[in-house]
Amino acid sequence: MQELSLNILDIAENSVRAGAALVRIVVRAFPTEDMLSVSIEDDGSGMDEETAKGAADPFYTTRTTRKVGLGLPYFKMNAELTGGAFAIESSAGHGTKVTATFGLGHIDRAPLGDMGQTMSLLAGANPEMDFVYELCAGAEPADSADGSGGFVFDTREVKQVLDGVPISEPEVMAYMASHIDENTKELISAYKI
């Protein structure tokens, strides 16, 4: 996958299948540590210890349709190729958090890419779920008062504005994609995310 936003979409699809109500995606650049951290956290069905341990193994799957599952192993490999690390925290019945770190300036790190497309697709295709996306740099909270530290997108706020208009309307999906793109491009280019 040529963009981290595609890995993120792929991992978030696991949260969709896990029956999550809320998925929180946080992308944080730490320029002084030359690190980029990406986490995807859901409140879905979670996994027991053994399943969570096996989840990043490409030949481990709970599916019966096929013998391989490549999404998590692929994300893990991409992280480790850049000197980063990968972790899954999960608890059955409570949800799952997948965290990957990357070398921010590492030549093999894929660019973050089009998170607008990823978020608008997740939100529009799963209207009964909510998604939060935070992009920030350094240790500053993403929702700092002046907006300089980062950006937060929350489908709960979008739905409040929509007041009954479905978030799956193609025009709303196109709006969300460009809203996220326009509000994050400065940060992305400033920190080469």
Binding site: D10, Y74, D114, P170
Partner: peptide, 17 residues
């Protein structure tokens, strides 16, 4: 799914939208 995303499904969906 992973196969679709890796093959370029996301820009296809975005273009339909």
């Amino acid at each position: 799914a992973t196969c679709g995303i890796a093959a370029g499904a996301r820009p296809v969906l975005a273009e339909f939208v």
